[in-house]
């Protein structure tokens, strides 16, 4: 689609966008689509919108922050933000921290939520968690079925060209790396001959007397 990058009084009105039509500013002020769009204007009255007004309840003080709710008993370690003075009454119990990734998460949670260090530390812990999981699988004699986990069958079914392209690109990168590393390292027959070994201990050189 052509774009006119200059500006002049001879510029024409925008052409219709495919699938729709363009209205001038005057036209769109008066538009009413009730006749051709089901439900048009049914929430025009702002009283019909659930989000209006924004504050629906009477003002509460900070005592409303932690109303008295029975406390869920933690049976495993639960990480708590430094910005909560106490554990929330209810919390999730999925995947308690463990291993090296757990220790890194412990460290990450010592930072407040406004610090990039906190989030980057947790991301690092996530990656180490993945590695720990793979090692755990291998230790149990299980090789992860990566093709099934990544859904590669659907790639074969719906995007063969894309899969072939990725495989070709991957192969090209590997071949380029192998070629590059071979060029840097000289072949054995091109290496210069090592000098003959000197006798040991070295012959003592007599001390020079300077005039």
């Amino acid at each position: 689609m052509d774009q006119i990058t200059g500006s002049s009084s001879e510029d024409y009105l925008p052409v219709p966008v495919p699938g729709g039509y363009a209205l001038t500013t005057q036209q769109r002020q008066a538009v009413d689509r009730a006749q051709d769009i089901k439900g048009w204007g049914s929430d025009l009255d702002r009283a019909m919108r659930p989000g209006v007004p924004r504050d629906k309840a009477p003002e509460l003080g900070v005592e409303g922050l932690y109303p008295p709710i029975e406390q869920q008993i933690p049976r495993t370690k639960i990480h708590k933000s430094t910005e909560h003075p106490r554990l929330t009454p209810v919390f999730g119990t999925s995947c308690p921290p463990s291993g090296l990734s757990g220790r890194i998460r412990d460290f990450g949670y010592t930072f407040s939520e406004g610090r990039l260090s906190r989030w980057m530390t947790l991301l690092v812990a996530d990656r180490i968690d993945v590695l720990e999981d793979v090692l755990n699988d291998l230790a149990k004699g299980r090789i992860p079925d990566v093709a099934e986990e990544m859904g590669l069958r659907s790639e074969l079914r719906y995007n063969r060209m894309g899969l072939a392209r990725k495989a070709a690109l991957g192969g090209l990168c590997v071949a380029a790396y192998i070629a590059y590393s071979r060029r840097r390292r000289p072949r054995r027959q091109e290496l210069p001959a090592l000098p003959a070994r000197r006798p040991y201990p070295p012959t003592r050189v007599p001390e020079q007397k300077y005039r």
Binding site: P50, R54, D55, K56, A57, P58, L60, V62, G64, L65, Y66, P67, I69, I78, H79, K80, S81, E83, H84, L87, T88, P89, V90, F91, Y109, E113
Partner: peptide, 20 residues
């Protein structure tokens, strides 16, 4: 809680210990 009473149910303060 303070936030739920304002109908800000996605901002509840009592269910997420990991982040406020």
């Amino acid at each position: 809680c303070y936030f739920c009473r304002k109908a800000l149910f996605s901002n509840c303060h009592n269910v997420n210990p990991n982040a406020t």
